[in-house]
Design a protein around this nucleic acid. Structure first.
Length: 496
RNA sequence: GACCCUAUCGUCUAGUGGUUAGGACAUCAGGUUUUCAUCCUGAAAACCGGGGUUCGACUCCCCGUAGGGUCGCCA
């Protein structure tokens, strides 16, 4: 049975890199029907925060990366680590180190100055029992691992055979004291205790692997499989960071990126199915994902691609869902909450009766909003863009830029006058009628000013009058939603 | 600096000794369209360099070069 874990430390939010690691773990595990564990690595209490923990958990859920066990928290498992630390000390595989941090820093500087690798000088490695006991009284120590001289070899699922010489690894610290293990130690203990079979993590942790294997060996733990994912770089090939734009999943969520798009995008950061297919839902990925196909070279974060995928998934959404997603971004309306609410037994949910346009106090329905959103489904790259795109529907008064109403330099007013006149006489406000009347009108109008047939003479000023924007959805669709009265009203406004 | 990793269009990549080096995003041109977007058609665009091995290297080996990662009482 395959068991994996995603083990973030709550010292930061869930970001692109993190999330990709979580996704690959999830895909690998679920494909094999294994168990996916979430473990919060909060051994460093000073840097850990529940705010980050919450962010990680919520965004993981939002992405649809579900875990089967956990979240476990290392801070609640201190007694477990203590047992193993003692074991290593008793077996003389670890030792107390009493060197002060100042001492260590000075040593390090000296080593640097003569061009040596900076390693702990093993000063406390062979203290006598008496000395240790005496110094222990002062209660100022850390615990170091007695790194044996050997070659550590392991088979990385992605990178193949990797070898490290422990000459390059010093007696690294494994715990601040009996109750406070450090990362490399806590990881090994937890992975063993939780029966983890595969460790899938970022390439940045590759240099830690031999240390962890050494601890596993010292404790007699079984060998574990490792897979190190390539790092994610910014477009300038530097490590992905804030200056490349948003890194937090939360930020993408807020900007209106779809969960589906982000998953599809993340999956292709360092992986692809060896085929030309590029559109994958999380379920499709579950079928085709394979850890062996993960690349060794760094992946580059390309926002253009994310935008493209986002637009694609927005176009695929059904209109009801899309409208719901857009709702929070339409700030010129507010939901009308019924005073009658479901009793708690029914979930205590509020029933939304409709929506009120803030400026005009008009009441509109969800279905009305659906019509508006559907005009922009094909034009949306991010959900957040809906705010600007649809604002003209909810404003009392539009502001028109000078020159906006004119088509190819022709004066807008005669056109608007006859449009107004024609529309005034329409009996049935339907798409077919509007289409026919406006098309006929375009022809007539073009002829009257001795131009070739060009719907622009009519359609452009009408559209501009209705929206006040230089680009938008089509005027007939908009007029249909606006209704006769409002449409004529806007034409009047525009003429002024 | 030491150790480790990597290298195909601008970007993501397919390719596993013989290919017109394929696809996607982005770019550009054309079509549809009142505008924008969508959609359709097309174009331009790549094997880091040098040595080997081989009848033949993008592909295998070596050396450069470039980029990245790591060197904590952080994770």
């Amino acid at each position: 049975m395959i068991r994996t874990r995603f083990a973030p430390s709550p010292t930061g939010v869930l970001h692109i890199g993190n999330a990709r690691t979580a996704l690959f773990n999830y895909l690998f595990t679920k494909k094999e029907k294994g168990v996916f564990v979430l473990r919060i690595e909060d051994t460093d209490e000073e840097r850990s925060s529940s705010v980050f923990e919450k962010d990680i958990i919520e965004n993981l859920k939002w992405l649809g990366i579900n875990w089967d066990e956990g979240p476990y928290k290392q801070s609640k498992r201190r007694n477990i680590y203590e047992k193993y630390i003692k074991q290593l000390i008793n077996e003389d595989k670890a030792y107390y180190c009493f060197c002060s941090q100042e001492e260590l820093a000075a040593e390090k500087q000296y080593q640097m100055s003569i061009g040596q690798p900076t390693q702990y000088n093993q000063k406390c490695r062979n203290l006598s029992k008496k000395e240790v006991e005496k110094k222990l009284q002062e209660n100022k120590y850390i615990i170091r691992f007695k790194t044996p001289e050997k070659k550590v070899e392991f088979n990385d699922l992605i990178r193949g055979k990797i070898e490290f010489d422990t000459k390059l690894i010093d007696d690294f610290a494994i715990a601040k004291n009996l109750q406070n293990p450090l990362y490399n130690f806590a990881v090994v203990i937890d992975d063993f205790e939780m029966d983890i079979t595969h460790v899938i993590r970022g390439e940045d942790l590759l240099p830690n692997t031999p240390k962890q294997i050494l601890i596993q060996e010292a404790l007699g733990f079984p060998v574990i499989n490792f897979a190190h994912l390539p790092v994610i770089l910014g477009p300038d090939k530097k490590k992905m960071s804030k200056r490349h734009g948003a890194t937090a999943i939360q930020e993408y969520k807020e900007q209106g990126y779809l969960q589906e798009a982000l998953i599809n995008f993340l999956a292709f950061l360092g992986w692809n199915p060896d085929s030309e297919r590029e559109i994958y839902t999380i379920n499709d990925l579950l079928k085709d994902f394979s850890i062996e196909k993960v690349h060794k070279a760094a992946a580059i974060f390309n926002i253009e691609r994310l935008n493209y995928l986002n637009g694609l998934y927005i176009r695929k959404k059904n209109i009801k869902e899309l409208t719901k997603l857009c709702l929070p971004y339409i700030d010129l309306i507010e939901p009308i909450i019924s005073s009658e609410q479901y009793p708690p037994a029914y979930g205590g949910q509020q029933i939304t009766q409709g929506y009120k346009i803030k400026e005009t106090k008009e009441i509109i329905t969800f279905e009305y909003l659906e019509k508006i959103i559907s005009l922009y489904q094909e034009r949306l790259k991010k959900i957040s863009e809906i705010t600007e795109l649809t604002s003209y529907f909810f404003k009392k008064q539009l502001i028109y830029d000078k020159g906006l109403l004119a088509w190819k330099g022709s004066a807008p007013n005669p056109a608007l006058d006859i449009i107004e006149l024609k529309l005034l006489n329409i009996k049935e406000w339907t798409f077919e009628n509007l289409e026919k009347i406006l098309t006929d009108l375009s022809l007539e109008y073009a002829q009257s000013i001795n131009k070739d047939k060009d719907r622009g003479y009519i359609m452009w000023p009408l559209r501009a009058a209705l929206t006040g924007q230089k680009s938008s959805a089509g005027p007939i669709d908009i007029a249909l939603i606006l209704g006769k009265e409002k449409t004529l009203n806007r034409i009047k406004q525009a003429k002024k």
